[in-house]
Structure formats: C-alpha cells, structure tokens
Lab assay of single mutants.
Amino acid sequence: AGLEKQLAIELKVKQGAENMIQTYSNGSTKDRKLLLTAQQMLQDSKTKIDIIRMQLRRALQ
C-alpha cells in the first residue's frame, strides 16, 4: 500500500511541475529560473515514478 501511495503522490508532483512549466514558459526572463526549477522537478519526479513502478513490479512477482 505504501508504494501505491508514493506513486500517487509523485504523479501529482509530476502534474504540478508540468503545469508550472506551462505557466513559466511564456513568461518573462525572471521566470526563467522558475522554469528551470520546474523542469528539474519534472525530471526528478519522472525518475522517482520509474523507480516506484519497478519496486511495485518486483513486489508483485
């Protein structure tokens, strides 16, 4: 149950990062740093999601 909860949280983080990227990508240059931060968050989240999914698969075997 813990892994499913972690996965749900990470999927929400990923969605939030995608929303932030959309918001900041057509903003001013001061938003550039926020855009880069959001892109890093998205990448980190995708990595965590992959790891959690692997752990889930392993647990189900």
Rank of each mutant, 00 (worst) to 15 (best):
A1M: 02
G2T: 13
G2S: 11
G2C: 07
G2K: 13
L3K: 14
L3T: 10
E4R: 05
E4A: 09
E4M: 03
E4Q: 10
K5H: 13
K5N: 05
K5Q: 08
K5R: 07
Q6W: 02
Q6C: 01
Q6S: 11
Q6E: 11
L7D: 12
L7M: 11
L7P: 04
L7C: 04
A8M: 06
A8E: 10
A8V: 09
A8D: 10
A8R: 09
A8H: 08
I9M: 11
I9S: 14
I9F: 08
I9K: 15
E10C: 05
E10W: 14
L11Y: 09
L11A: 10
L11E: 11
L11Q: 10
L11P: 12
L11I: 04
L11K: 15
K12G: 09
K12V: 01
K12R: 10
K12A: 04
K12H: 10
K12F: 01
K12T: 08
K12I: 02
V13G: 11
V13A: 12
V13C: 00
V13T: 11
V13I: 09
K14M: 06
K14W: 00
K14S: 10
K14P: 02
K14V: 04
K14H: 07
Q15M: 13
Q15V: 06
Q15G: 07
Q15K: 05
G16C: 07
G16L: 13
G16A: 14
G16T: 14
G16R: 15
G16M: 14
A17H: 05
A17F: 07
A17R: 08
A17T: 10
A17S: 08
A17V: 09
A17D: 05
E18A: 05
E18K: 10
E18N: 12
E18L: 09
E18Q: 08
E18R: 08
N19I: 08
N19L: 10
N19Y: 02
M20I: 03
M20W: 01
M20T: 05
M20L: 06
M20R: 03
M20N: 03
M20D: 06
I21H: 04
I21T: 13
I21G: 14
I21Q: 13
I21A: 11
I21L: 10
I21N: 13
Q22I: 06
Q22A: 10
T23K: 15
Y24F: 05
Y24P: 13
Y24G: 14
Y24H: 11
Y24R: 13
S25I: 03
S25Q: 11
N26H: 12
G27M: 02
G27T: 10
G27A: 07
S28R: 10
S28A: 11
S28V: 05
S28L: 07
S28T: 08
T29A: 11
T29H: 13
T29G: 11
T29Q: 04
T29R: 08
T29D: 07
K30W: 09
K30C: 02
K30F: 04
K30Y: 02
K30T: 06
K30E: 02
D31R: 15
D31Y: 13
R32K: 15
R32P: 07
R32L: 03
R32Q: 06
K33M: 04
K33T: 11
K33S: 10
K33H: 03
L34Q: 03
L34V: 05
L34E: 05
L34G: 04
L35Q: 05
L35F: 06
L35H: 01
L35D: 00
L35V: 06
L36H: 13
L36K: 14
L36N: 13
L36Y: 09
L36E: 13
T37W: 15
T37H: 14
T37V: 10
T37N: 01
T37Q: 10
T37L: 12
A38E: 00
A38M: 11
A38T: 01
A38R: 00
A38G: 03
Q39V: 03
Q39M: 05
Q39C: 00
Q39P: 00
Q39S: 04
Q40E: 03
Q40I: 01
Q40V: 03
Q40R: 14
Q40P: 01
Q40C: 02
M41L: 13
M41Y: 01
M41V: 08
M41S: 02
M41T: 04
M41W: 13
M41C: 05
L42K: 01
L42W: 13
L42P: 01
Q43P: 00
Q43C: 02
D44G: 11
D44I: 08
D44K: 15
D44M: 08
S45N: 00
S45H: 01
S45Q: 01
S45W: 15
S45A: 15
S45G: 09
S45R: 00
K46A: 01
K46G: 00
K46E: 02
T47W: 02
T47I: 09
K48Q: 01
K48E: 00
K48R: 09
I49C: 01
I49P: 00
I49A: 01
I49Q: 00
D50Q: 08
D50N: 12
D50G: 14
D50I: 00
I51H: 14
I51K: 15
I51C: 13
I51N: 15
I51L: 11
I51F: 08
I51P: 00
I52G: 02
I52A: 04
I52N: 02
I52Q: 00
I52R: 01
I52T: 01
I52E: 15
I52W: 14
R53V: 04
R53M: 11
R53Q: 09
R53S: 04
R53A: 05
R53W: 14
R53T: 11
R53Y: 04
M54K: 15
M54S: 14
M54F: 04
M54L: 12
M54I: 08
Q55T: 08
Q55W: 15
Q55E: 04
Q55N: 07
L56W: 01
L56P: 08
L56T: 02
L56N: 01
L56H: 01
R57G: 05
R57L: 04
R57I: 04
R58N: 11
R58Y: 05
R58Q: 06
R58C: 02
R58I: 03
R58W: 03
R58M: 05
R58T: 09
A59I: 06
A59W: 05
A59Y: 10
A59R: 09
A59F: 12
L60E: 12
L60M: 09
L60R: 14
L60W: 12
L60A: 09
Q61R: 15
Q61P: 02
Q61N: 09
Q61W: 15
Q61L: 15
